[in-house]
Nucleic acid binder design. Sequence first.
DNA 1: TTCAATGTTTAGAC
DNA 2: GGTCTAAACATTGA
Length: 287
Amino acid sequence: MPELPEVETIRIGLQKKIIGLEIKSIEIFNPKTFQGDEKSVLNSKVIKTWRAAKMLGIDLENGKSLLFHLKMSGQVIYQDEGNIFAGGHPTLDMKDAMPNNSTRVQFTFSDGSKMHFNDQRKFGWIKVINTDELNENKFYKGLGPEPLDKSFTVEILKERLLKHKTWPVKVVIMDQSTIAGIGNIYAAEACFDAKLDPRVKVSEMNDNDFIELHKGIIRSLNDGIKYGGSSRATFVNAEGEKGLFLDYAYVYGRKGEECKKCKTLIEKIEQAGRGTYFCPSCQKERG
DNA sequence: TTCAATGTTTAGAC
DNA sequence: GGTCTAAACATTGA
């Protein structure tokens, strides 16, 4: 499940490869995945790549931009002479020949290299927009502050969270309009890191909780980037297999397993229709 | 066979 | 409008 760190890993990889290249052709295998006029992005140089929350952007010289959203099962796989670069949802077939049966869109660049947008569940999308109309994009417009930006301070976190005083902390940090880019996995991990019970309401948090949560969010996201960078960014062999992805998680997906810190069994509850994992001992509810 | 899983959008109820 | 719930999207695997 690609979240902010996975998308950032992809962006860093693409940045090194495609700046200055032109898209020569686009093959669309699943029409719903690609929105907009694909011809309008051909034969124009890539000038910039960027990321906002879990959205990836590629700006072109002709004033058009491509927006990507991987949703739950998207992957971006880039291939040039002898190299494969892949990021996103980890599956075994990532390292196989492309396109495969989850490939939805294929881009061919001016140097002959190819980029594939794979998406098992077809929830992800690619959109063509005018670069200067990005601010009108509904998703982009509604985003909260970037948690890895230097300007994201404890004060900002507190201010954003207090907009939803009655919400449980884990639910509120997943809300894209409150903070950008945190999904179910990192929300759970950030709470664990901050030793916060995910059910604690914002109104029940004290100053120390905000400080710890701020650290927890940044630490788990950075760990994710580090992890993505080291194990998936440039794999050429069997890396990218399922198990690797969540090996570093303390609580996510570990129901009934021992907490890595205190050996208490990890519990799972439901919050806002999503699974929440936590250690009942390390993450104590406030009194 | 049914159901949970994921991120986001959209719709509806209070 | 805030807040909450649920369905929808597509697919897989338990």
